[in-house]
Design a protein around this nucleic acid. Sequence first.
RNA 1: CGGGGUGUAGCGCAGUUGGCAGCGCACUGCGUUUGGGACGCAGGGGUCGGCGGUUCAAGUCCGCCCACCCCGACCA
Length: 477
Amino acid sequence: MAEDKLTPQSENFSEWYNQIVQKAELADYAPVRGCMVVRPYGWALWENIQAALDKRFKASGHVNAAFPLLIPMSFLEKEKEHVEGFAPELAVVTHGGGELLEEPLVVRPTSETIIGYMYSKWVKSYRDLPILINQWGNVVRWEMRTRMFLRTLEFYWQEGHTVHSTDKEAMEETRRMLDTYHDFAVNEGAVPVIRGRKSQTEKFAGAVSSWTIEGMMRDTRALQSGTSHYFGQNFAKAFDIKFLDWNNELQYAYTTSWGLSTRFVGAIIMTHGDDQGLILPPRLAPTQLVIVPIYRDDAERSLVMPVVEQVRQKLAAFRVHVDDRDGLTPGFKYHEWEMRGVPLRVEVGPKDVEKNSVALARRDQPGKAGKTFVSQDGLEHSVAALLDEIQAALLARATAFRDEHIYDAKDYQELTEAVQKGWALSWWCGSAECEAKVKEDTKATTRCLPLDQPGGTGKCAVCGQPATEKIYFARAY
RNA sequence: CGGGGUGUAGCGCAGUUGGCAGCGCACUGCGUUUGGGACGCAGGGGUCGGCGGUUCAAGUCCGCCCACCCCGACCA
């Protein structure tokens, strides 16, 4: 790894991204095109994401279950828009046990259909509702162009699927989970996402409305980082999910689904990373702090190591790693842990033994600027405070960066210029033609109609027609 | 699927007119080192993408095939 410099973000952002995934040992390429192996460090990060989300899901009354990977082909075809949306990217199993199957099975690209089928069996009465089930699993979508974490043929995610007796309640659920994602992204990932509704062209295949959290990456491109869908009665009608209501009348239920995937790992990488490597938010980092012992010879070593052990025990409440590998210089270790994005480094050397101190180096401020010497007394408190400060600083920095790259674009010229250097926030008349024109001319797509609307009316930045809502245009992943 | 490119050690590459398959990093062992990417010595590691052809002789020349990457049409 020595002398193995990372390509700077400014030189080639996507190359920077590819290298960081490899060098930080988050993932590696699998033998099948477009598939990735999530390595232990990357998976540990995902596990922390899972834990933070799962806690929130449980707190709002959801329970976990597991539905099968294989789905009868015919299920996909029951909802017209759904099959049209997913047909081009299905992996299909045609043989089993050496025999041609009577009906092909698709590897789930998402589980609305199979879960809808099961829900139709389970739902009889309003007393059975709501159903609030989440599933942690993997799905397969045969994508053309793939990128580690951002778009792979197979990816890991959670998908929540709920059933409600009223449209109001289902809509509330859709919005509640959007807010849950927002809370998670901002407070755990320090990723300042914008909540909003997708346009009709960008919404999920089969949904009435789709809601999204959109993050701005450090190349200013947008990343859809989580979605929540309101289905109305679309899937209930396709899968015959009916219940007897309070008046003993049979009616279709209202359903939702919401998902967040390993793509969020990509969001973290591209929101916080710098030219030294990954920077992980303390709350999600697999290793929150690494202790690097420093010594010149065996005498110093026997002096330093007991103090390292004391410090480790003092910091046992955190996710700590002691890098006691022999034969590597401290400098080498610094670079390696910086590449892996560990938020805080603790150095313990002979001088520290003498002075009852340690050196703390924060990852978000590289070099001398982020290095301070603190007393070993009360170290657990200074470390806790510093981790909180780093978490807050990452969010503040990312928010400032995002806000600096959002442009209020009033006309078409401003819009086309804005999407070359960031996001455009513009009045939009609501027509798909205007979206298509922007995409054709600039490759930028509509990201979302943000929840925070200015109110009033304006002129569509594309066609000049009256508009009542503002929408974000951006180049996206 | 259209346009461009690349396949030689784990990674990055060199390989001249066809003539012993190499270099850097990484890896193993020993020794010296260690507060911002240490150094020396000694080692291990190859179906040169695949198949076929030309030739005394092919990494190199010819043909076919395959894979991957980049750029255009789809997307959590």
